[in-house]
């Protein structure tokens, strides 16, 4: 290889180079490419969203946001997140606890199953619920006769969101809990603690930062989910539209300012998530490092 020389020819000032380092040209070149990419594909679109939303001034920005249909979409999105995130917090902790701390048959299968919502297209995730609860499905007629509306209503949207966001908490916790092992729990048990006390006083404090991290990602996805929710929602204005769906409708109606105004809120959520995520990573990197290794 011509490139693995330990010294460079860029001048006498440069001393022996670290083996893993590249020449100055290569370094700046690579950094430049990365920066261009980030600017073009991340910063520029984000800036466009904000400028489009503010095109006619902040007055109109707030007017379009207070439109009843848009306001209903924001409310619905918050409602769905408030239901889905706590549910997946509980499910995720339970699944991670079972997988990381116990040996049982079918564990590998369960681990794979947890990843399923990530590997399946969100549209399919939505279709699953249509097939399950639709009028031509097994459960459909029974549900109808009892006056229970799942599809094209809030329950369907919540179910689809729970399904899509299920892996976030569990996947964050499984490697973390596996790394921590079971000896802390065994120590608590040997000191006389009950299973619940062990979980509450020992396991939970050990995983709290990883858990928060998972919840954060779960929440971001729950509020931003489009595909699965789109399939089950029915797009009833003011009733079953979440923010991402509302953005699409407004955009298709050439109501650009309104579309971008709602998009701004979603973008702000994304930025807030990123900031919190970075803060968590900075402060508790050691404790959540394990989970980032997968």
């Amino acid at each position: 290889m011509a490139h693995d020389a330990t010294t460079t020819g860029t001048g006498n000032t440069e001393l022996v180079r670290v083996a893993t380092s590249e020449s100055r040209f290569a370094r700046y070149g690579l950094i430049g490419i990365a920066l261009c990419f980030v600017a073009l594909f991340l910063v520029l679109p984000l800036a466009a969203v904000f400028t489009e939303a503010m095109r006619n001034g902040p007055g109109e920005f707030f007017t379009v946001l207070s439109d009843p249909e848009t306001f209903a979409a924001i409310e619905l999105t918050l409602l769905v997140a408030v239901i889905a995130v706590p549910l997946n917090l509980v499910f995720g902790v339970a699944a991670a606890w079972a997988i990381a701390k116990f040996e049982f048959k079918g564990k590998a299968f369960l681990t794979t199953l947890i990843d399923l919502p990530f590997s399946v297209s969100p549209v399919i995730s939505g279709l699953v619920f249509v097939l399950l609860f639709g009028s031509h499905s097994l459960l459909g007629p029974w549900l109808q006769s009892h006056g229970i509306q799942i599809l094209f209503a809030v329950p369907g949207i919540v179910l689809a969101t729970v399904f899509v966001t299920f892996p976030f908490v569990a996947r964050e916790l499984i490697p973390l809990m596996q790394e921590q092992g079971t000896s802390d729990e065994e120590a608590a048990l040997s000191l006389g603690a009950s299973g619940w006390q062990t979980f509450w006083y020992v396991t939970l404090p050990n995983i709290k930062w990883g858990l928060l991290y998972g919840v954060l990602l779960c929440n971001a996805r729950a509020m931003g989910e489009f595909g699965a929710v789109s399939v089950v929602s029915g797009h009833i204005r003011g009733l079953t539209n979440t923010m991402p769906l509302q953005v699409e409708i407004l955009y298709n109606e050439y109501n650009f300012v309104a579309a971008f105004a709602v998009a701004t809120l979603l973008a702000l959520l994304a930025l807030l998530t990123l900031v919190l995520k970075s803060l968590l990573e900075m402060k508790y990197s050691a404790q959540i490092a394990a989970s980032r290794r997968h």
Partner: peptide
């Protein structure tokens, strides 16, 4: 009373 090889002290 059990003392574990890596102590298993509650770190928090």
């Amino acid at each position: 009373g059990f003392v574990f090889q890596h102590y298993a002290l509650f770190r928090h």
